[in-house]
Design a protein around this nucleic acid. Sequence first.
DNA 1: GTGGGGATTTACT
DNA 2: GTAAATCCCCACA
Length: 200
Amino acid sequence: MPWRRQPSRDVVRAALAGPVLDVAPRLLGARLTHAGVTVRLTEVEAYAGPDDPGSHAYRGRTPRNEVMFGPAGRLYVYFTYGMHFCANVVTGSDGDPSAVLLRAGEIVDGLDLARSRRTRGPDRDLARGPARLCQALAIGREQNGLDLAELLVLGEPAGEVDTGPRVGLRHAADRPWRFWITGEPTVSRYVAAKPRPSST
DNA sequence: GTGGGGATTTACT
DNA sequence: GTAAATCCCCACA
């Protein structure tokens, strides 16, 4: 009804529609809920449009990266290394293939469920790393394109934010487009890309 | 149709 | 520290 407070889903969509480098740090501290588990995001990476050599969208639109080219606020899920899923929040205006990779978070609800989805280990590792985060939240192929407007809660204070190079990329490894909350134990450690085996 | 590579995690030495 | 697991995507022929 018109006199009600504006639904939070519209606020979320509007917030995510901005430039990806602005949106990425603002996702820190946000809460994402799926399949009975809620995480507080502590580490993300920006993938900035069609000119970012590290982005799946760099070589244009394909069936896999289709969702990245759509409107902000949807989930882009991809499968990699034959066994892992990773999740991104699509940002920017419709047609701009920018997204934010969800690299790590702290489980704040559904702890037992998250534990049951992961191999045994310390709780701080349950969503420490993009594939672990997906596993804890039970995000997979079927969640590609999912509208996050109802699942994502923004506005939590993130604390101090650090930036640095993105993890595991061969190209554009110098761009400091990884963001994390300073001092968080759930943040994954930096790992450079494996160098290509040299034939010399 | 073929082949190289991957925004990772885990287990083992 | 290093290596294995494991399959989908995409570029090219």
